[in-house]
Design a protein around this nucleic acid. Sequence first.
DNA 1: GCTCTAATGATAACGCATTCTCAAGAACAA
DNA 2: TTGTTCTTGAGAATGCGTTATCATTAGAGC
Lengths: 131, 131
Amino acid sequence: MDRDTLQRRAIRRVLSQSGRPMSPPELLAAAREDVPRMGLATVYRTVRALTDEGWLVPVEMPGEPQRYECAGKGHHHHFNCSRCGRTFEVEGCPSGLETMVPEGFRMDTHEVFIYGLCGDCNDPLPGPRGR
Amino acid sequence: MDRDTLQRRAIRRVLSQSGRPMSPPELLAAAREDVPRMGLATVYRTVRALTDEGWLVPVEMPGEPQRYECAGKGHHHHFNCSRCGRTFEVEGCPSGLETMVPEGFRMDTHEVFIYGLCGDCNDPLPGPRGR
DNA sequence: GCTCTAATGATAACGCATTCTCAAGAACAA
DNA sequence: TTGTTCTTGAGAATGCGTTATCATTAGAGC
């Protein structure tokens, strides 16, 4: 994984422009705007390489296929739109997590997922968008 | 699904006694204490039937196979032990989730997952326990 | 106990996400 | 430009969780 190809540039562009975690099929659809004949295997290969390099980090949501986002963003959580299925980053962190940990247990990390409607899907005016 | 069988009683017993969400393989292992020849297909069939009846609810954690817990427990979240892999219920709910929702988005529900060591695995005295 | 029929157990089949295979194509060095 | 070698695209193959198949077993009413 040391050559600079159209396909790899397209995937990096998509991920840094979207600013949200994307699944391999999402990435493929978006990257095909740059490289129409791109295949899904290339997406998986590139995503794995970029993850190994530390450029990407995997994002898992319950019952969802794996997504990937650019690394180095600091602590944050995710919002999943139940209408269009897209996942977004959200800033901040809830408080009071410590009080939830049972006696004798040790908390190391946590994950928070918020579900609802994203800005596009919540907007009543322009009608349904997306998938 | 209208006969009362040994297998079904065993699975109900395991789930109501454990008080934590369990995956089909976990359920199989535990239920075999009552019915040693039980098969995995029976676990899946029974779990589906109990879910359809409203006795069980599925619990999904990121990157984990589906688990099931008894229904009717009220709002709560989950703790996953990174040593033994078991999942536990935790009471309470963090505050400040509303402030995390981006402008224009609408929050409907949320999920919180805490990771760390459970009481057994955090106890330094008796040494490691298996899953 | 006898019958009827649903449930079980073993295993094959499935769906899905992901990885592999390999001939063809594209980057980079010379 | 040419040659070498890595990367790509298409589809086959894999892994894993779950469901279907079907002969056998066992509830439940008589």
